[in-house]
């Protein structure tokens, strides 16, 4: 039983950290997008390429945000399954077999 409590605590920790990463990714994505807008106002080839990189980074950070949300949802699902006793029971059944 203690093992499941430990697992729940670990999952809670992961959940809160993923939520933090999600927020950070969202903030950084906004900053990168603003950089793109600023850099595109310069008529310089190399700066344009940096701007494009910033735009790609903004999108990838946006994607990270979505991935974090999906992972947080999965972790929440596992925590709920532990609370309902589904994971503990299936593990016990596996031990008996």
């Amino acid at each position: 039983m203690d093992n499941y409590q430990d697992l729940k605590h670990t999952l809670s920790y992961l959940h809160s950290e993923i939520n933090r990463i999600e927020t950070m990714a969202g903030t950084l994505s906004t900053i990168e997008r603003e950089h793109y807008n600023k850099l595109t106002s310069f008529d310089h080839r190399e700066i344009m390429d940096i701007a494009v990189e910033e735009q790609n980074a903004a999108r990838q950070l946006g994607t990270m945000k979505q991935m974090c949300l999906a992972m947080a949802e999965k972790i929440e699902g596992i925590k709920n399954a532990i609370d309902r006793g589904e994971i503990g029971e299936s593990a016990k059944r596996a031990e008996i077999h």
């Binding site: 994505s29 906004t30 790609n56 903004a58 999108r59 990838q60 946006g62 994607t63 979505q66 999906a70």
Partner: peptide, 21 residues
């Protein structure tokens, strides 16, 4: 407002694949 461009392929798979564009 940033436009979301990412998609996830294989929601049912154990390892779904998320792409940015």
């Amino acid at each position: 407002v940033g436009i979301r461009t990412s998609i996830t392929i294989g929601h049912r798979a154990k390892k779904p694949m998320t792409i940015t564009i």
